[in-house]
């Protein structure tokens, strides 16, 4: 009975520590990513908007004759396929 109680306490403690660790990880991630987002992405966004650069087509363009754009995807040299871009 005593062993069971000890086990329960130990397991509870372990889970508590684990949860605490997870919370800390989430907090640090959120803080760091928030920094990256507001500084990195935010500044880029401001520059993009100032230079009127459209990264996504968000509106219809009724006058455009077509929405197809050239892709031209065909066989390339082998080396190109080693690249992730």
């Amino acid at each position: 009975m005593k062993m069971d109680t000890l086990k329960k306490i130990f397991t509870g403690f372990k889970n508590g520590i684990k949860n605490f660790g997870n919370i800390i990880t989430i907090l640090i991630n959120t803080v760091l990513l928030a920094f990256v987002y507001f500084v990195g992405v935010g500044v880029s966004s401001i520059f993009a908007k100032l230079s009127r650069k459209k990264l996504l087509e968000l509106k219809l363009s009724k006058q455009a004759p077509t929405y197809w754009s050239d892709l031209g995807l065909k066989k390339k040299p082998l080396e190109d396929y080693y690249r992730q871009f």
Partner: peptide, 24 residues
């Protein structure tokens, strides 16, 4: 993967600051 990441970043830049939650 990098091409896809480029698209994801473009989304976040274009839709700043609405995309904060999905970015994180």
């Amino acid at each position: 993967p990098f091409l896809k990441f480029e698209r994801v970043l473009s989304q976040h830049i274009e839709l700043f600051p609405y995309s904060f939650k999905t970015f994180v």
